[in-house]
């Protein structure tokens, strides 16, 4: 049982100060910009909600948002089932377990722009391993700087390569926590592999899978560095995801007002969808 103790606030204080310094001040800056217009020299004019209306009505924002949802949807639909499948087929104990875990976790520890650069080198049409293989061995015309479909396939494959291991590790953590007695009972009852999965393994993985889906949603929705390094948002605008577009507006064109309004809308969408996911996934627990 937890005891009521208001002095516990003193323990939380350092965290509160540090996070507030980093979260509240920049957030207020963004809110400030989002309702003002400036022509430089630190002179600002009140603009009201004009920027928000402009962003919400702009085709450019709709297109970027659409691409972003498409990307995140593809990521979740591929990485979650794949991660579960790999976790299920991994050995539960023995010498190979740590070897598998270390090798699988490796992509997650590579700096994001190195991931982009690595995939760039890997997919170069004539001198990259994958590019050469596709173009000269299989005879498929593959060049992601020209073909939007190829660019999409490449950034999705790159993300699957980069982050599926997170789902594997989480699902695996859930699986090893299932006591052997459950499997023995299932065996006595003559349960099929599918029923073992459906009625024992899946329910036991529910918490970790909720975490996996939430983390994958948030991170793929906020992704910036890897696709930027790999494709630069191109060809054309075909892989310009939300963050890439935002950075273009804020730091490229220095349109602070629209960029700030877009930031707030962006953050609000992330929060809203995360909250919806969380509520739906944990609904059964509360009833």
């Amino acid at each position: 049982m937890k005891t009521e103790n208001q002095k516990a606030w003193f323990f939380v204080l350092p965290v509160l100060i540090l996070v507030a310094f980093n979260a509240l001040i920049p957030m207020m800056t963004v809110v400030n910009y989002s309702v003002q217009e400036t022509f430089g020299d630190n002179v600002f004019f009140w603009q009201g909600l004009d920027w928000f209306q402009q962003i919400l009505r702009s085709d450019r924002f709709h297109a970027a948002l659409g691409r972003q949802f498409m990307f995140t949807f593809l990521i979740l639909i591929i990485e979650i089932p794949l991660g579960i499948a790999i976790a299920l087929s991994m050995p539960r104990k023995g010498f190979w377990v740590p070897v598998c875990l270390v090798l699988m976790a490796l992509p997650m520890l590579i700096p994001w722009n190195v991931v982009g650069a690595m995939w760039n080198i890997f997919t170069l049409p004539d001198i990259g391993l994958l590019g050469y293989f596709l173009n000269h061995v299989l005879g498929i015309n593959y060049d992601m700087t020209q073909d939007p479909v190829a660019a999409w396939v490449t950034i999705v494959t790159m993300d699957v390569w980069h982050w599926t291991s997170l789902v594997v590790l989480l699902a695996y953590a859930g699986l090893v926590s299932i006591p052997d007695a459950y499997y023995q009972a299932a065996k006595i009852d003559g349960a099929s592999n599918w029923s073992v999965f459906r009625f024992i393994q899946l329910p036991k993985m529910k918490t970790v899978l909720t975490i996996a889906i939430l983390l994958r949603f948030m991170d793929s929705f906020n992704i910036y560095t890897e696709p930027f390094v790999l494709t630069g948002g191109g060809p054309g605008n075909s892989t310009t995801l939300l963050s890439i577009d935002l950075v273009k507006i804020a730091l490229g064109q220095f349109d602070l007002g629209p960029a700030a309004a877009m930031s707030l809308i962006y953050f609000a969408i992330t929060l809203l969808v995360s909250w919806l996911f969380y509520t739906v996934m944990t609904k059964d627990d509360q009833t």
Binding site: K2, T3, E4, N5, Q6, K7, A8, W9, V12, V15, L16, V19, N22, A23, I25, P26, M27, T29, V30, M218, F221, N222, Y224, L242, S243, L246, V247, A250, L251, L256, A259, S263, Y266, F267, T270, L271, S274
Partner: peptide, 28 residues
């Protein structure tokens, strides 16, 4: 270990920062 005023809200608020797109914070 403890319950204190606003503990759940604070915990949730901390986690929401994990959801912030880094691109939003770059300039500020």
């Amino acid at each position: 270990r403890y319950r204190f005023l606003g503990d759940k809200q604070l915990f949730f608020w901390l986690l929401t920062n994990r959801m912030a797109p880094a691109a939003v914070f770059a300039l500020p």
